[in-house]
Amino acid sequence: MKKIAMLTLLTLVSSASAVKVGALIPLSGASSVSGQAQKNGLLLAVDEINKAGGVLGQPIELIIEDDQSNPAKAVPAFTKLVTVDRVDFMVGGLGSSTTLAITGAAKQYNTFMAWSGAASPLVEDAMKDYPYFFHYHPWAYYNFEAILAFFKNLKGNKKAKNIAIAYEDGPFGSTGLQDTVAAFKKAGFNVVLTEAFKAGSGNFAPLINKAKTQKVDIFYWIGYDVDALPLVQQMKESNLDVGLVYGAPPSWPIGFEKNKLSQGVASLTMWTPELPSTASKNFVKAYKAKYGSITDEYFAPLAYLNLKTLAEAINKAGSTNKDKVAEVMAKTTFDTPLGKLSFTPSQKIKYQGFKGSNWVTFQFRDEKRIPIFPLKVAKKTVLYPMP
């Protein structure tokens, strides 16, 4: 009888334990602005989930580790979450290089990954046969489709034709570069320069000097927030004459819009605080209540919905069984601040979320981010050439 009673007690204790979710995000290093936005979104989601009753009747437990924007740091941080903290699920993820580094460990430990970042198709290749990988962020080729559509519109109206490409030399910037160049050429553009740089180095003189030998209508750069200010500052100091600077970092430096050097710089976002949907308005209201102001970084609502949708799927599954949760995730359409979310196959993985239909191009204008494309959401026409 004592043995039966003890087993019953252990079962009750086990069933009452909190669901642990690990988050691997860059709170320091080159991607820290995006990582801090992710952290804020995740913590807001925890508040709302637990206020609504938690997961499987218990408060959800979120354990955050900093990958330091460094693949060498990401692997031990990921391993700790899985083996020491023994998390049930993983969320977060931002950099392609850090995500690529942990794909082997994820497969080794059979980890369920609801992943909000990493756009490189190299990650897609690595996870194409993995049954527990749900990818929220559009892959780079979806992103590029939105960028190319804007450039074609710019070309038609403003005769912008010559493109210089500067890219960080990791997986995020360099993957698919040849395909990018080919797509630009097919669309009628002249690619006059392709030049790599080291993210976070702050040294852009070599590529700027090469760009000065060409007529550049569009300067297209792919890097991280840490690269933005030194790049535009050195371009200004070198008197590099370009029609438009178009950046594709996951986030921009805090306060960048207030710097005069930002005026006219264009970029891409998946979300703005002005979106009219109820889900977005509710997020903005809750975010302001918790943090005192709203962010412009889309990784905050993306991380928020990352955890919220996972918690909803676990509750619907009534279990932490990975197969049951995956089945629910695959069949559910979620209402999120970024729009409706459902998981369907991409080119190589089974569970791809957003595919780029909600990308918006904006320009930094008068200390704000002003939507300029697609035309149906544009608040102003494009400022070209830049001041």
Score class of each variant (00 low, 15 high):
residue 13 V to F: 14
residue 306 N to C: 10
residue 39 K to R: 15
residue 165 I to Q: 01
residue 237 E to C: 03
residue 70 N to M: 05
residue 154 L to A: 10
residue 195 E to R: 10
residue 253 P to V: 10
residue 58 Q to D: 05
residue 53 G to H: 01
residue 103 T to C: 08
residue 349 I to N: 00
residue 351 Y to N: 14
residue 88 D to L: 03
residue 64 I to D: 05
residue 75 V to N: 03
residue 139 W to N: 01
residue 95 G to H: 02
residue 252 W to D: 08
residue 52 A to G: 04
residue 335 D to Q: 13
residue 78 F to E: 01
residue 27 L to H: 04
residue 150 F to C: 08
residue 215 K to P: 00
residue 57 G to R: 11
residue 121 P to R: 09
residue 170 G to Y: 07
residue 289 A to K: 08
residue 213 T to E: 14
residue 271 W to Y: 14
residue 179 D to F: 06
residue 311 A to F: 07
residue 365 R to I: 15
residue 266 A to C: 11
residue 346 S to H: 01
residue 354 F to S: 00
residue 152 K to E: 14
residue 331 K to L: 10
residue 100 L to R: 07
residue 311 A to H: 09
residue 320 T to L: 02
residue 180 T to H: 12
residue 292 G to E: 02
residue 7 L to R: 14
residue 304 Y to V: 05
residue 27 L to C: 12
residue 298 Y to M: 11
residue 218 I to F: 03
residue 307 L to R: 11
residue 205 A to V: 14
residue 354 F to D: 03
residue 234 Q to F: 02
residue 291 Y to C: 11
residue 54 G to H: 11
residue 95 G to N: 11
residue 310 L to T: 05
residue 374 P to Q: 10
residue 88 D to A: 05
residue 321 N to R: 08
residue 146 A to P: 07
residue 48 E to L: 09
residue 378 A to Y: 07
residue 58 Q to V: 04
residue 283 F to Q: 04
residue 242 V to G: 01
residue 135 H to A: 13
residue 119 A to C: 09
residue 103 T to H: 01
residue 240 L to Y: 05
residue 248 A to H: 12
residue 12 L to Y: 12
residue 308 K to Y: 02
residue 99 T to H: 08
residue 233 Q to N: 14
residue 378 A to G: 12
residue 18 A to Q: 14
residue 268 L to H: 04
residue 362 F to G: 03
residue 206 P to Y: 00
residue 85 D to N: 15
residue 216 V to F: 01
residue 115 W to M: 05
residue 294 I to L: 02
residue 362 F to H: 02
residue 178 Q to K: 15
residue 213 T to W: 04
residue 144 F to R: 12
residue 132 Y to F: 15
residue 166 A to W: 14
residue 137 H to E: 13
residue 268 L to P: 04
residue 69 S to E: 03
residue 41 G to C: 01
residue 311 A to W: 02
residue 43 L to P: 05
residue 75 V to F: 02
residue 9 L to P: 12
residue 75 V to L: 12
residue 218 I to P: 05
residue 365 R to G: 06
